[in-house]
């Protein structure tokens, strides 16, 4: 097996995963994520993008295959060690922004910092800075349910970026948004990541979103593929194929 390049911050080798109910998840995925790059994991729904991100970030235990983060084996770590790794080195953005409803926006943003044991004053300063950078500064004292979805998603991104993670996992960060908000959210995310040298692993099923990334890894049915079959253009001739009588 070839040695991974030195500048890979995170890599996976022949990653297999099967869900607890027996349904197939991943079937031998190998990939490397370089320092500071934005890597898009593309693929249609159900192709194993989220599972791959869960395995890479240590949310799911890896039984078959290897995941290495900065030369430390994630696949041999216990739950506690993985939890610490996630807290100290990883950021996570979900498809829907799940903020803690009873905390206001800046407290939500500062929460990862507070969880790392950073003082309240420093955490607040950092959180407010990030909120300003992501155009959410004016909402700092409001509560999540007073915001719109796109604003909440920006706050979630600020929360993920605030502790300065080494790797940021973004699982379809723009899925519930309209196209205008989508572009805004993605631009803020990619700009912030590039300017701060944060590695981003971005799962998306949208080719336009994937185009913003430095590199794209395509998944299909839990396998890495070179090319993705595009959906065929709707044609009138194609209708006949749907008929059972043919």
């Amino acid at each position: 097996m070839e040695a991974p390049p030195d500048n890979d911050v995170l890599w996976a080798r022949t990653l297999h995963f099967r869900h607890p109910d027996g349904s197939p998840g991943l079937a031998g995925v190998s990939l490397g994520v370089r320092v500071g790059e934005i890597l898009a994991v593309a693929g249609p729904r159900g192709s194993g993008k989220t599972t791959l991100l869960h395995c890479l970030s240590g949310l799911l235990p890896v039984r078959d295959g290897e995941v290495w983060f900065n030369s430390s084996p994630v696949h041999t770590m216990g739950p506690t060690a993985r939890e610490r790794l996630r807290r100290d080195h990883f950021g996570w953005i979900e498809p829907a922004p799940v903020l803690v409803p009873e905390l206001n926006v800046w407290e939500n943003t500062a929460l990862p910092l507070l969880l790392r044991g950073i003082g309240r004053r420093r955490a607040k300063v950092a959180a407010l800075e990030w909120l300003e950078r992501l155009d959410a500064g004016e909402h700092a004292r409001r509560h999540p349910r007073e915001l719109q979805q796109a604003e909440r998603q920006r706050v979630a991104i600020a929360r993920a970026l605030a502790p300065g993670p080494t790797v940021l996992f973004a699982d379809e960060p723009t899925a519930p948004l309209h196209h205008g908000d989508r572009a805004h959210v993605l631009r803020t995310l990619t700009t912030a990541a590039r300017s701060h040298g944060i590695t981003v692993v971005l799962a998306t099923h949208d080719a336009r979103t994937a185009a913003l990334a430095d590199r794209t890894v395509s998944l299909l049915d839990g396998r890495r593929v070179r090319t993705l079959p595009l959906p065929e253009a709707a044609e009138t001739e194609g209708r006949a194929a749907c008929s059972l009588s043919v």
């Binding site: 949310l59 939890e83 100290d88 996570w92 799940v98 969880l115 929360r159």
Partner: peptide
């Protein structure tokens, strides 16, 4: 439950 799950994904220790 949903908030708790999100906090755990964030890396909040379950003990905390």
């Amino acid at each position: 439950a949903e908030t708790t799950a999100a906090l755990l994904r964030l890396g909040a220790p379950a003990g905390m």
